[in-house]
């Protein structure tokens, strides 16, 4: 569905140039849920925003994002607007901030029908009610305002907005952040149900969610994809293994060292300062992504 090739995203800041995404290549297949996991600040949200072309002005993008035969990065703003919400939809992090506090939730769902499908106001609101029902909120609350809903409900509203026009691709950025575990369960099940037949890019740092929901998982580190796997048991990259070991149920062993700076990242393999298997070559050359792993150790096999 979506082919990302050699994507490079840079930001010009006062402190220097931030290399948020470095030669990222990824494929989102039809009807699959692809997880994108990594620490905070590794560049995964940037990837989502780049697909939607929602980056700030100080950004510089190179590479290709192919959707339906066209490179999204080369489309005009007008063409992109047609795609946003209708073909590819994104749910931003933090529902409390993503909903406009002075507009009713019904209005915020209905407007996608108003402006994309050019429905009348009445029809749009009717469809909005239907969407509320689908995500498990009583349609009676259609004229209420975001602050009147709990965190879990706001997330449902976000899902309603995102799926309203039945997009082919859904990008979900940390959809369960800040929710308690039972609400998390509910949201996950809801998303599983509603995204049948679609492709979804699930951005999260929660490995359990990723495992439960995703068909494949891409692991991101310092702006690069370091591993792509379908099963955590088959993890090969030292970083992935480190992430797994830091889970409470697997021993809560943190990874040594700190996250690298994206302005002046380490030479060679970006993970080498924290890797216990590092060899000299790791400090000089950055390995290529081969057979789903970016590591010289696994190169040999």
């Amino acid at each position: 569905m979506l082919k990302i090739r050699n994507l490079e995203v840079k930001f010009k800041t006062i402190e220097g140039v931030v290399k948020a995404n470095n030669k990222v290549s990824l494929e989102l297949k039809k009807d699959e849920i692809l997880g994108l996991i990594g620490e905070t600040g590794c560049g995964k949200t940037v990837l989502g925003m780049t697909i939607m072309r929602l980056l700030p002005k100080n950004s510089e993008v190179k590479g290709e994002i192919i959707y339906k035969g066209k490179n999204l990065l080369e489309l005009s703003e007008k063409e992109m607007r047609e795609i946003r919400g209708k073909e590819i939809a994104i749910m931003l992090q933090n529902p409390s901030l993503s909903l406009n506090p002075v507009l009713s939730v019904g209005e915020q769902i209905a407007e996608v029908f108003l402006y994309h499908d050019k429905l009348s106001k009445k029809d749009a609101m009717r469809k909005a009610s239907e969407m509320l029902k689908i995500v498990g909120i009583t349609p009676k609350r259609i004229n209420e305002y975001p602050h009147q809903f709990s965190g879990g409900m706001k997330q449902r509203i976000m899902i309603a907005i995102a799926l309203a026009l039945n997009p082919k691709i859904l990008i979900a950025d940390e959809p369960t952040k800040g929710l308690d575990s039972s609400t998390k369960e509910q949201i996950i099940n809801l998303m599983k149900k509603l995204t049948k037949g679609k492709s979804m890019l699930l951005i999260t740092h929660d490995l359990d969610i990723a495992e439960k929901l995703c068909d494949r998982i891409a692991v991101m580190y310092a702006g690069e994809i370091v591993e792509i796997l379908s099963n955590f048991n088959k993890a090969k990259h030292p970083y992935t293994i480190g992430l797994l070991n830091s889970l409470p149920r697997r021993g809560l062993k943190p990874i040594d060292g700190v996250s690298p700076s994206l302005i002046s990242p380490p030479s060679g393999c970006k993970f080498h300062p924290r890797c216990k298997y590092r060899e000299e070559i790791c400090t000089i050359k950055n390995p290529e992504l081969k057979n789903g792993v970016r590591c010289f150790r696994n190169d040999k096999s």
């Binding site: 946003r84 919400g85 931003l92 996608v112």
Partner: peptide, 16 residues
């Protein structure tokens, strides 16, 4: 604000 970016993400025209 975040909700403005969210609105843009819905593909709404700038005027709106």
């Amino acid at each position: 604000q975040e909700y403005i970016i969210a609105a843009k993400a819905k593909g709404l025209p700038e005027r709106v």
